[in-house]
Amino acid sequence: MMTLVFVVCAYLLGSVSFAVLMSKAFGLADPRTYGSGNPGATNVLRSGKKIAAALTLLGDAAKGWIAVVLAIMFGAHSAQGVTTIALVALAVFLGHLFPVFLKFKGGKGVATALGVLLALNVWLGLAALGTWLVIALVFRLSSLAALVASIGVPVYAMVLGLPREWVLASAIMSLLLIWRHKSNIQNLLAGKESRIGSKKTAQ
C-alpha cells in the first residue's frame, strides 16, 4: 500500500508543468502554442525570456529529484525499498510526459529525468549532464544532446554498479526519451532541427 501511495504522489508531482506555470507567471504565451509546442524549458527559451526558461528547467528537475529523494528517505528500508524507488522514479517521469493536469500531453522529460538520476546516484546524474552539455555546446542542438545522453545513461548505471531495478528504470526512461524525440530525430535527419536559443515561430 505504501508503495502505491508513493507512486501515485510521484505521478501527480510529475504532472505539474513548470513550463506552463512560469509562462503564466511571466505573462508569456502558453509554450504549447509556439515553437515545438512542447511544454519544456527549451521551448520556453524560444520566448526570449531566459529567466522563465531557467526556472522551468530547475522546477522540472527539482520535482524528479524530490520524488526520488523522498522515496529513498521513507521507503529505502522496507523489504521492497529498491523496487519502490525505481517505481517512483518512473512514476514522476511518466507524470511529466503524460500529465493528468494537461490532458496527458506533457513535455519530453529531459530535465525531470536529470533530477531523477541525480537523486538515484549523483555520479549517474553528473555523467548524463556532462554528456548533454558537451553535445549541446558543440552542436547547439538540445534534442541531439538529449538523445546521446539517453543512450549513455543505462550504460553509466551498469558501470556504477547500481541495483538492477534502477538500471532497468533508467533504461525505460531512456527509451521513452528517445521515443518522445521521434519528431526531433526526423528534423535532425532533415537538417531542420531548431538550435538552442532560436526565437519562437508562429503556428
Rank of each mutant, 00 (worst) to 15 (best):
T3H: 06
T3E: 13
Y11W: 10
L12Q: 07
L13E: 03
G14H: 06
S15Y: 09
S17M: 05
F18R: 09
M22P: 01
K24V: 01
F26P: 02
N38V: 02
P39A: 04
A41G: 10
N43L: 03
V44Q: 11
V44P: 06
V44R: 10
S47Q: 10
L55P: 03
L57D: 01
L58A: 15
W65A: 14
W65R: 00
A67E: 02
V68T: 03
V69R: 14
V69K: 14
G75E: 07
G81T: 08
V82S: 15
V82Y: 00
I85Q: 13
A86S: 13
A86Y: 06
L87M: 14
V92R: 04
F93M: 14
L97I: 10
V100N: 07
F101Y: 15
K105S: 11
K108A: 10
K108R: 15
A111T: 11
L117G: 01
A119P: 08
L120S: 08
N121K: 11
V122L: 12
L124K: 12
L124T: 06
G125W: 07
A128E: 12
L129I: 12
T131N: 13
T131G: 15
L133I: 14
A136H: 13
A146Y: 04
V148Y: 05
S150I: 01
P154K: 10
Y156S: 08
W166S: 00
V167H: 04
I172C: 05
M173S: 05
I178W: 13
R180Q: 11
H181N: 04
S183F: 05
I185E: 04
Q186T: 10
Q186K: 15
G191N: 07
R195C: 07
K199N: 09
A202I: 14
